[in-house]
Amino acid sequence: MSPSSAGTPPAIETRGLTKQFDEVRALDGVDMSVPRGSVYGFLGPNGAGKTTALRILAGLARPTSGSAFILGRDVVAATNEVRSLLGFLPDVPGFYPWMTAPEFLRFSGELFGLGGAELEDRVGALLGLSGLEGVNNKIGGYSRGMKQRLGIAQALINAPELLMLDEPTSALDPIGRKEVLEMIGALGGRTTVFFSTHILSDVERVCDHVAILNKGRIVTQASIAELKESRGEDRVVLEVEGPSGDGLSGDGRAGDGAQVDGAPRLAGLLKGSSWLLNIEQTGHGRLLLAVADLPAAQRAIPQAVAELELGLRRMEIEEASLENVFVELVGESAV
């Protein structure tokens, strides 16, 4: 049993999980805890080690060191026991092309020891959930989206306590992606869903918890709300026009026709405000402000603009997003 088995063990727990491939360390001491019942996003750029972690958790690969537990069972020692509690969808699911969807679901169920009316009921329900009801073609003729939905359905055939999905939406078109995300979202609260992705918006859309993996290391893990609160910052995008008069034409342009930039003067005035975390000029007349206290900023900025007799063309508030957190932790290049 896992070290935290005194109470109900988490759905997934890893301790110092490390995987070395020759010169490459794919996972480097990963400590992670996935609460039961959560929809957990395992986020990271391509090559971060997400698939390697999932392969170890699914019993397809062995860790070089460290340990991993699923629902309190060691994934290396209790393989059959772990697999009976688990539903798994790899990034590119491979099906027998000569089977139909109901045939594959029946076969999958039989591997879990299911049969009779119970199996038929589940097959019918999962075909409905995956939108494959009435589709009797061979799987070999399915689109990528249909295969992905069938992949999720087969992973649910045993009503798993933990559903693990590896990049379930990658390489899908927008409609296929929407359908798969809706399926995942519909599972929230019914089972623990752990899915890896490099697509930030997918995590924001359906997950309540997230771990961010970069270069084989967990850089953060928390509920999405906590993460935004603790690490995220609201941002204000400002666009101002230069003042009229003082040798300027009435439209705020310098005598020679050039636009006067009021942004540096505004930045200078706002600097030092208690609610301001950072300010940078992003273009002519444009400022991007990172703020700690959004209401205070909403009061102070128009006052400062008026004080400098500038024209306020745009004031747009961007609330803290996972993308900001991800960029901060992983780097711009990873997005």
């Binding site: 397809l60 697999r83 798994f88 699911p93 491979g94 999958s108 020891g113």
Partner: peptide, 14 residues
Amino acid sequence: RRGTAILVLTKPLS
């Protein structure tokens, strides 16, 4: 190679 082994070997098939 076809990926079918992954789907069946992550179920209770030894």
